[in-house]
Computed example of a mutant assay.
Amino acid sequence: MTVTTSLNTHAQRGAPSGRIGRVLGGFGTLLVVPAIILVLWAVVAASLQSLVFPGPVESARGLLADLERPEFLAGVGTSVRLLVVAWLGAAVMGGLLGFVLGQSPFWSQVFQTPLFAFYSIPKVTLYPVFLLLIGLGEPSRIAFAFFHGVFPMALLVMGATAGLDRRLVRLADALQLSRTQRVRMVILPALLPTVLMALRISFGLTFLGLVLAEMFSANVGLGRELVNNVAQVRVDRIAGQIVLIALIALGPVLTMLAIERRIRARMGIR
């Protein structure tokens, strides 16, 4: 009895550290590909020894030189602020639209083709339309970034809602749940892995749209700074800024991916 009690106590004490180890291990697996890319980058740059292909060290120095400029930091802050606004708008609007349309097989079939058509359009060709309708300034950049992220969010949520396991719906009927209880206790938990995946994809595309918009019409921001470095042929700073953009994107994306994997593991979904 004493030995069993001691073992149970030891297991309970070790459980938090075990969970922390699994979380850290999950993040470690997600960082394998970036680490491989970094190593390959360094090897290729060292073998080429070209002024137009800087290595990680030269790129880091260029990025640090940019980070010392207050106007560059202000531009980064502006880009992050606009990105958050555009992405939240795309996530909320796209998620609600996809959820509402996915409730009806008829309306999901009706709107599926137009949504895919809009999603497949090269959106950079439409940016002059945004400028004409909204004008220069932050609203047009937010709208263009929103336009990049809202369609994948709507399509993925709509597909997941339309393809929801009918057994879950019958279970909700058997339990005589109200409409609100059905959505909160049955439908949303079943859709959660797909919603997280849609949020991750929407974030990356929204960021892409924002950088493109800043390259064309902004006077501040990451896209504008990238164009300035290209115009002045500062290759090390170009590479450093690309690394910064990748880091800003990878942080939220890897976090959402880790959460998604954890939820899928709990739900027994591969």
Results as ranks from 00 to 15, higher is better:
M185A: 15
L196I: 04
P139C: 06
L115P: 07
L175Y: 07
F116I: 08
P152D: 05
L191E: 01
L155V: 04
R234M: 12
V169P: 07
R184Y: 10
P128V: 01
N229I: 06
F111C: 07
V233A: 12
L188V: 09
G209M: 07
G209T: 04
T161G: 11
Q232E: 12
V195S: 00
I121H: 08
M158I: 03
P139Y: 03
G159R: 00
Y127P: 05
L168M: 10
A154G: 02
A162Y: 13
A117N: 13
D236P: 07
I134K: 00
I121W: 08
V195F: 05
I187R: 15
F147S: 13
L199Q: 00
A154V: 03
L132Y: 02
F207H: 00
V220D: 15
G204L: 09
P114D: 12
G135R: 15
A218N: 01
I242Q: 09
L192D: 05
I201N: 06
I242R: 09
N219T: 10
V227E: 12
T180L: 11
L247C: 07
G163N: 06
A213M: 03
G221I: 00
L156G: 13
E138G: 12
V110A: 11
V211L: 07
G209Q: 08
F216C: 15
A246M: 06
L212W: 08
R167F: 09
A162E: 15
E214N: 05
L196G: 09
T161L: 09
F111E: 13
F203G: 04
A190N: 10
L168F: 09
R234N: 05
L115W: 13
L131P: 06
N229A: 11
P122N: 10
L155W: 04
F147L: 08
I134G: 01
R234H: 07
S120M: 11
I245W: 03
R167W: 10
L222K: 07
M215D: 12
L171T: 06
P189D: 04
G240E: 07
G223S: 05
N228I: 15
E214T: 00
A246D: 05
G209N: 13
S217E: 09
L131A: 05
P122G: 06
T180N: 14
G159L: 08
L205W: 15
A172K: 10
I187L: 11
R234S: 02
L199A: 00
G223R: 09
L188R: 01
R200Y: 03
P128Y: 03
D165Y: 00
L126I: 03
V124R: 00
A231W: 14
G137D: 03
V233C: 15
A143W: 10
P152W: 00
V243L: 10
N229K: 15
L136Y: 11
F151T: 05
G204M: 13
T194N: 11
V183W: 02
P114V: 01
P128D: 00
G135T: 08
A160F: 01
L205F: 13
A154L: 04
F146G: 03
L131Y: 04
D173M: 02
P114C: 14
V220Y: 12
A117P: 13
L177V: 06
A239V: 01
A162L: 12
V157Y: 04
R234Y: 07
I121D: 15
Q112K: 14
A172F: 14
V211K: 01
